[in-house]
Computed example of a mutant assay.
Amino acid sequence: MSVADLNAQRAWYQRALGLHEVIEEFQLDEPAVRTVVLRSGSGVRLELIERAGASRNRDYVDPLDAASTLGFGHWAVSVRDLDAAFAAIVAAGGVGVWPPVDAVQPGARFAYVKDPEGNLIELIQPPATTVTSPE
């Protein structure tokens, strides 16, 4: 994901989403580009890229607005406890866009937040799985 401030976004994603492990860092002088690949304990990876002079075409109000433009609109991550994840991200400086609600898939729930630069993130809590023993 292209970001305006690599250091600030890196710190936010480490704090808000637990992407603490740094897998890779890279820098070019021309064009001026810096990248970092972060990973969570569960294996989620995110690459943040900062390029000098980059700009955003437009900000999205919500996921339906983002769907009106081709290309990247949001990214999604699976969470175990949607309410806790939503609250933690907002407490860490994220912006709540759509609060947790039931999804179409029975038992699943979802919500949307924005990171400090306005990138949309969908939080998805899959349905609880029940383990049955053979009879």
Score class of each variant (00 low, 15 high):
Gly41Pro: 04
Pro31Leu: 02
Val33Ile: 15
Trp75Asp: 11
Ser42Met: 12
Ser2Lys: 13
Leu120Trp: 06
Phe72Ser: 07
Asp81Thr: 03
Pro31Phe: 00
Asp5Val: 05
Ala76Ser: 15
Gly94Tyr: 02
Pro116Asn: 01
Val95Asp: 13
Leu17Ser: 08
His20Asn: 15
Arg34His: 11
Ala128Ser: 13
Ala32Met: 08
Gly93Ile: 00
Arg10Tyr: 07
Val22Gln: 02
Asp59Ala: 14
Leu38Tyr: 01
Glu30Ala: 10
Ala108Phe: 04
Ala67Val: 02
Ala84Thr: 12
Glu47Ile: 08
Val61Ile: 14
Val113Thr: 02
Glu25Asp: 09
Ala103Leu: 07
Ser68Ala: 14
Val44His: 04
Glu135Thr: 09
Pro106Met: 07
Val44Lys: 05
Val36Pro: 03
Val101Ala: 15
Gly118Phe: 06
Arg39Val: 00
Leu48Met: 06
Leu38Ser: 01
Glu21Gln: 15
Asp29Arg: 06
Ala54Thr: 13
Gln9Asn: 07
Ala16Asn: 01
Val90Cys: 13
Val33Trp: 06
Ala91Thr: 09
Ile49Lys: 08
Glu135Ala: 14
Glu21Cys: 03
Asp5Asn: 15
Thr35Glu: 10
Ala84Tyr: 07
Gln125Glu: 15
Met1Glu: 12
Pro126Phe: 07
Thr129Gln: 13
Glu47Gln: 15
Gly96Met: 03
Glu117Gly: 03
Ala32Leu: 11
Glu135Pro: 15
Ser68Ile: 10
Pro134Val: 03
Ser40Cys: 03
Leu28Pro: 05
Ala52Met: 08
Gly41Ser: 09
Gly107Glu: 10
Arg15Cys: 09
Ala128Pro: 10
Phe72Pro: 09
Val77Asp: 12
Ala8Ile: 05
Val37Trp: 07
Tyr13Val: 04
Gly94His: 01
Gly53Asn: 12
Arg34Gly: 08
Glu30His: 06
Asp5His: 09
Val77Gly: 11
Leu46Glu: 04
Gln105Asp: 13
Asn57Ile: 11
Pro116Ile: 02
Ile23Gln: 01
Arg45Ala: 06
Arg45Glu: 15
